[in-house]
Nucleic acid binder design. Structure first.
Lengths: 187, 187
DNA sequence: CCTACTCTGTAGCTATCGCTACAGATTTGT
DNA sequence: ACAAATCTGTAGCGATAGCTACAGAGTAGG
């Protein structure tokens, strides 16, 4: 429930803001949205609640910022595979990014499941990310499959990697990269 | 935190117990474990807290029962594909079961992500379910693929269906059954 | 140095959390 | 019919949730 609306204009030691975001991301990835309290975040970030509320108007706005920032850096890192790039490189690169941004991706998953009537902004951001993921697969698959099958294959591949990511995160001996290579060999 | 330990022996209108389990399952599927309060469950089940705590010693024990009961009925419904059964039928049957037990499966997913240092009993039950799922795939794939590839293909297939299930639950126009058929055509 | 703005600590608000004591209602075995 | 066992309602416990008022420290520009 945002009461005051204010443009955040951080200054000097505004790495505080970044530390809050980091703490929030890590904690929500492990405990879920409802399971992560403001107090926990503050303790992890080494500040107290009033500082947090200076940067973010509410818990919801804080996590909107987590998604926003995470989406931005993730999308920057995982750009569409260049035409020149070898397929092998694209696979290695993207699976590296997945583990590097695992915390953020877990946050996304948690929020997708633990939907709890969040603001439409959340939903919109997630839909955009999922659409981008589909695009990435379409670009990768385009040269090697019939146009009629493209969409369905992209959906299938994205689903597979999502599932493999979850298995990996759950601690099973599953490698996203390995699954990804297997899958591409099939197509 | 279970203080008293007692064997539950329900009697007359012990459909109360079932109503509590139903409410808990539905709510945790939508809001996560931490996001579902005892009060919410009681309101949904049409009882009050002291009744709930007569049947279950704690919130954790309640959700352990949700998992336990869900796992049992789910495993009964989705038995291993018979040798005689046509592959098509097995696929149709299992994907029907997936949507029929969607709430329970969401609970599982939520608990896997929102791990929050739960009792080992949770973890054990989930590992069993995931192992069973792998077995199901191995049985289905055995007649149509090299033994050397069996394990890896089973892992891949399970991952795909997990991912497709999530997409479907998120509200995307993805059909688990359709994805499943596509996948089997590839193999 | 002074004023304005940016950030942080203290202290505490109301609401709800998980949970319980306990009396009473209901059902069961004998 | 009577005692024992099974359930349910009232009322409230201590702890923590999200959040805020407010005083004051730190910093920047003039």
């Amino acid at each position: 429930m945002a009461t005051r609306s204010r443009a955040v204009r951080p200054r000097a030691n505004s790495d505080t803001r970044a530390r809050i975001l980091d703490a929030a991301r890590a904690l929500v990835a492990r405990h879920g949205y409802a399971g992560t309290s403001i107090t926990m975040i503050c303790r992890a970030a080494g500040i107290n609640a009033s500082s947090l509320y200076w940067f973010f108007a509410s818990k919801e706005e804080l996590f909107l910022a987590v998604i926003e920032e995470g989406a931005q850096t993730f999308l920057e890192a995982v750009s569409a595979p260049r035409d020149g790039t070898a397929r092998e490189d694209a696979v290695a690169s993207v699976s590296r990014q997945l583990t590097e941004h695992a915390l953020f991706l877990r946050v996304l998953l948690v929020m997708m499941l633990e939907a709890r009537e969040l603001s439409p902004a959340f939903r919109a951001r997630m839909e955009e990310l999922r659409a981008r993921s589909l695009d990435w697969w379409r670009a990768l698959l385009a040269p090697m499959c019939a146009p009629a099958d493209l969409d369905e294959f992209a959906v299938l591949c994205r689903a597979t990697i999502n599932g493999a990511f979850i298995a990996e995160q759950f601690g099973e001996p599953v490698s996203v990269e390995r699954v990804m290579r297997r899958l591409l060999k099939l197509l």
